[in-house]
Design a protein around this nucleic acid. Structure first.
Length: 339
DNA sequence: AAGCCGTGGTC
DNA sequence: TGACCAAGGCT
């Protein structure tokens, strides 16, 4: 039987001297735990989003919404606008709903157990465990993409993802120390990010290589095993930039569900299941914009022209204000039309 | 349970 | 270029 005793202690010792310094984190030895609201916000922001991006956006968001109550009471449009450019915009809507639920159902006090946390909007298996461990020191089994990778290698889990998830969670539980559960979870993630990387893992300086089933072997890089992804489809459409005499641009709020749901966007269609507005045919061709999503490739023709017409169900906004509140795709289309 | 949902970086 | 990846959740 592989020895797991001592794994946690070895990793924590490494973390004590190698922890990344991050704005939402209580550093090891700081003798405090991170603020639950900060942990919630950072964890949601970090879902499928790189640390580099979150390091920049977390302080800005926190500045605008300094505490749970402020976030809960903020207009939804403000929250969505603050999320612009971060992607996966349902996260913003869920985060807002989560803050409201915490105020309404928990008196503004975070529950500490995973189960109660997971019942909140936008909080799933990973995030509930992470908040429970990091903000409250609970012995939750935290498994994210980094930890998945570390565990499949340490325990040599060769089953294909995502089927192996249950097995991985079991193995992850075996590796846990008997204290410092929050530090441990973050240590695992730091290890996965910096040492036990997807490509070219740095086994030579890994603090837990003596516990690892595949350390130093070529097999390490092959784990976890993942099925190949299917090719994305190309979708074509049109975006319309109508300009008023004062320079304002016609914008519109997108439907709550679907691509860029609830965000500020531009009129148009053909790429999102909606018909191309007839005005498009009367406007100047401003060029094209290509935008790559995880499972789709959008090829957009940008049309522009002056108008004194009524706003319809849209809203006139100055370009600077619009840019700040719109997903990147729309910003690109706007740039194309205005430059 | 497999597909949907953004964006930017790397190789 | 294209494939893969990054502290996932929801349906």
């Amino acid at each position: 039987m592989r020895k797991t005793e001592g794994f946690g202690a070895a990793l924590l010792a490494w973390y004590d001297t190698h922890a990344r310094v991050l704005p939402w984190r209580a550093q090891p030895g700081e003798n405090r735990r991170a603020d639950p609201y900060h942990v919630l916000l950072s964890e949601v922001m970090l879902q499928q989003t790189t640390v580099a991006v979150v390091e920049k956006r977390f302080p800005q968001f926190l500045d605008q919404f300094p505490d749970l109550k402020t976030l809960a009471e903020a207009p939804e449009a403000d929250v969505m606008a603050a999320w612009a450019g971060l992607g996966y915009y349902r996260r913003a809507r869920s985060l807002h709903a989560c803050a409201k639920a915490l105020m309404a159902q928990h008196g503004g006090v975070f529950p500490q157990d995973e189960k109660a946390l997971k019942a909140l909007p936008g909080i799933g298996d990973y995030t509930s465990a992470a908040i429970s461990a990091i903000a409250f020191g609970e012995p939750a089994v935290v498994v994210d993409g980094n930890i998945e990778r570390v565990v499949t290698r340490v325990a040599r889990v060769t089953d294909e993802m995502p089927g192996a998830k249950k097995l991985i969670k079991g193995e992850a539980a075996k590796l846990m120390p008997d204290a410092r559960f929050g530090d441990y979870a973050q240590a695992m993630m730091d290890l996965g990010a910096r040492v036990c990387r997807p490509k070219a893992p740095d086994c030579l300086l890994c603090p837990v290589r003596s516990y690892c089933a595949v350390a130093g072997s070529a097999e390490a890089e092959s784990l976890p095993r993942k099925a190949h992804k299917r090719k994305r489809k190309t979708v074509q459409g049109v975006m319309i930039v109508l300009r008023r005499e004062d320079g304002a641009v016609l914008c519109e709020e997108r439907p709550a569900d679907g691509l860029f749901g609830g965000m500020l966007g531009l009129p148009g269609g053909g790429w999102d299941g909606r018909a191309v507005p007839e005005v498009a045919a009367t406007l100047r061709d401003a060029g094209g914009v290509t935008h790559i999503l995880t499972h789709r490739r959008l090829e957009i023709d940008v049309k522009t022209g002056p108008t004194d017409g009524s706003p319809g169900d849209g809203v006139w906004m100055q370009p600077d204000e619009a840019r700040a509140a719109m997903p990147t795709l729309f910003v690109k289309a706007l740039e194309r039309a205005l430059s």
